[in-house]
Every structure is written in structure tokens, then in C-alpha cells.
């Protein structure tokens, strides 16, 4: 049963991916009418060119990393948690909701509660998606997609309705939170975000490699039928993995509110849930490569803000490049599979 045949060595694969990605990116930049080298240098300069910009990129890395860490758990459980985007949003809503109960001068304690509320909100949203799968036989991709729309709709309704700014309802968001509930950023350094993201990375690593729960989740994801027979309760594991992922996504959302925007915005999640999905798939569902890939995506996101200023290009070009990179990985993986089949003679 051992599959002999073709397997690319890691460096070969890396070079293949890089070559493909560079070629595809070049074509897109040329089509967009941008001098490729200039575009790359603008993005890099915008992402890490100065201390402030590097810290901004780090600030984007943290929610990406929190979401990716969570997704590693749901992928281990064999689940496609597309709903992560909505879970980020629900985390932001839950945190905002809790903090609105406290007024000025309540100290920093509510801030902690707000982060916990964010985790609970995200976990609840993810649990819903999981429960629909386990009890209702609705695939989590469909329920996740649906719940994403619901979460975004809920944000808009809150911003334009019950939580609108006094005077005029505006898509620019709710009223800013009191200063007490702003996450401290000493010297612009996203200290707490980074600490929490790093903690999530370490926790997920320990869970997946050392803990019995992680082992059971992996087994349930690999073969639910055998897992049921072994008494491992695969349905329960799916719900737990979803809730854990949702909690991390919700925390990311709560950090967006308390650390960055200090209010609820219509696009509070900035699409980081989807970006994290891309990052995790690109990393082959492994924790190690996810970390730098999230950094890279963060730099692209922050750096592309300079594109309209420097080159009169739309900043959405970053998203296109991101997508092309991920596609390159998939194309190379697909090529590898074909070559392996051919050489394996299957």
C-alpha cells in the first residue's frame, strides 16, 4: 500500500511554487499596467519600510494568526470552517455589546470581560455551524457561509439602528468606546495582541502534538466511522473543535474593536477570516509555515495601502496577489499529484 512514485523534495517544491507565483504575479501586474518591480518595492516599503509600518503589519498579523490557529483545530477535526469570518464579526459584536454596559471610569476590568465576551460570541457562532452539521446534517460550508451573511447583516443593523451615533446614523460605525477600554499600545506596539496570538500558537501546537484531546480530534476528523466505534464521540469533538476555533476568531474580532478601531465598524473583520483560510491551506494545514505566511499576508495588506499613493493603483491588488499566491501552491500540489500518479502507474 505504500505509495512509491513521485514526491518532490521540499526545496524543489518551494522553488516551483515561487517560480509559478512570481510568473503569475508578473502577468497580473503587467495587465494592471504597473511596473512590477516598483509595485513590489512600494508594497514592501509600505509594509515594513518604517517602524510604524512594521508595527502596523504586526497588528494585522495577530488577528490572522489567531484565526489560523483556530482553523488548524477545525481542519484537524475534518471540518471546513468557512464561517470563521462571521465568527470574527460576532466576537467584535459581543465585545462591543458588553463594553457598552460600562461607562467612563469603570477601569480596565471590563476590557478583560469584553475580550472574554468576544471569545464567547465567536464560539457560539461556530457552535451553531457545528451543531447544524452534527445534528442537522447541514454541511458546515453552507451553514458557515449563511451565518457569515447573518453576522454582517447584524453589524449593519446595530450600527444603523440600536447602536447608531447620536445625531446621525452613519456607516462610519458606532460611537467610539471610552479610553479606558482601549487596549494599551505602548509606543504603537500591539503588545497584548501579539502576546495573545503567540499564546494561541503555542496552545494549538501543544494541543495538536501532545494532548489526548488533540489526538482524539484528529482521529475523529480522519475517520468518523471508526471514531464512533472506538467510543471517541466524533460529533462532540466536531462541536468542541468548532467552539475552540470560534473562540479564537471571536478574540480576534474583540481585539479589532478594543485594540484598533475602538468602535464597531461595518467591515470590522477586514476579511481576515477568509485570508486566514487561504494562509492555512497554503501552509498545507501545518502550524510552522502558517506563521510566516500570515506575516507575509499582513505585509501585503498593510503595504498595499501605499499603492494608490505611490503608483495610482488600487489597493485591492494586494488581494489579487494573495489569491494568486495561494493558487500557485494549489497548482503545484496538483501537478505533483499528477506526476506521482503517472510515475506510480496507478
Amino acid at each position: 500500500m505504500s505509495a512509491p512514485g513521485f514526491r518532490m523534495a521540499a526545496p524543489v517544491r518551494l522553488v516551483a511554487v515561487a517560480a509559478f507565483a512570481v510568473a503569475a504575479t508578473l502577468i497580473i501586474l503587467l495587465l494592471a499596467g504597473a511596473p512590477p518591480l516598483d509595485a513590489v518595492s512600494v508594497i514592501l516599503d509600505g509594509g515594513v519600510g518604517s517602524r510604524i509600518r512594521a508595527l502596523q503589519s504586526l497588528g494585522v498579523w495577530t488577528p490572522l494568526m489567531l484565526c489560523s490557529a483556530g482553523l488548524l483545530l477545525t481542519f484537524a477535526a475534518g471540518l471546513w470552517n468557512i464561517g470563521i469570518e462571521g465568527q470574527v464579526v460576532m466576537g467584535a459584536i459581543a465585545a462591543t455589546c458588553l463594553l457598552r454596559f460600562f461607562g467612563e471610569g469603570a477601569g480596565t476590568f471590563p476590557l478583560v470581560l469584553g475580550l472574554l465576551a468576544g471569545m464567547a460570541g465567536g464560539a457560539l457562532w461556530a457552535w451553531l455551524s457545528g451543531a447544524l452539521r452534527v445534528y442537522g446534517r447541514v454541511h458546515e460550508i453552507f451553514s458557515g457561509l449563511g451565518l457569515n451573511f447573518v453576522a454582517i447583516g447584524l453589524t449593519l443593523w446595530l450600527i444603523l439602528g440600536p447602536w447608531r451615533q447620536p445625531g446621525a446614523a452613519s456607516l462610519s460605525g458606532t460611537e467610539p468606546l471610552p479610553d479606558d477600554f482601549w487596549l494599551p499600545m505602548p509606543g504603537g506596539f500591539p503588545l497584548w495582541q501579539t502576546v495573545l496570538a503567540a499564546a494561541a500558537v503555542i496552545a494549538v501546537r501543544i494541543i495538536l502534538t501532545k494532548s489526548r484531546w488533540g489526538l482524539v480530534v484528529k482521529a475523529s476528523g480522519q475517520n468518523a466511522s471508526a471514531a464512533a466505534l472506538w467510543g471517541l464521540r466524533p460529533g462532540l469533538r466536531a462541536l468542541q473543535a468548532m467552539a475552540a476555533c470560534g473562540a479564537l476568531a471571536g478574540l480576534a474580532g474583540a481585539l479589532q474593536v478594543t485594540g484598533l478601531y475602538h468602535r464597531l465598524l461595518p467591515s470590522i473583520s477586514s476579511g481576515y477570516g477568509y485570508t486566514a483560510l487561504l494562509a492555512v491551506m497554503m501552509a498545507g494545514f501545518k502550524l510552522g509555515p502558517v506563521i510566516p505566511i500570515c506575516f507575509f499576508f499582513a505585509i501585503l495588506n498593510v503595504g498595499s495601502i501605499q499603492l494608490p499613493l505611490g503608483l495610482r493603483l488600487d489597493s485591492s491588488l494586494a488581494g489579487v496577489i494573495q489569491g494568486v499566491l495561494a493558487l500557485s501552491v494549489f497548482v503545484v500540489a496538483g501537478l505533483e499529484l499528477r506526476l506521482r500518479r503517472r510515475k506510480g502507474g496507478a
Binding site: R212, L215, V216, K218, A219, Q222, N223, S225, A226, A227, L229, W230, L232
Partner: peptide, 22 residues
Amino acid sequence: PAARLERGLFPDMSVREHFQLA
């Protein structure tokens, strides 16, 4: 089960992990 790999074991998990689970 008769379908050992499909219903009884976890294909990509190691012998060690099977022991740990059992």
C-alpha cells in the same frame, strides 16, 4: 469491521497513535 481501513482504523495515523487512542 471487515473494512479495516475504512471503518476500523485511522489511515494516516501512526501505529503509536492508534495505541494511544485505544
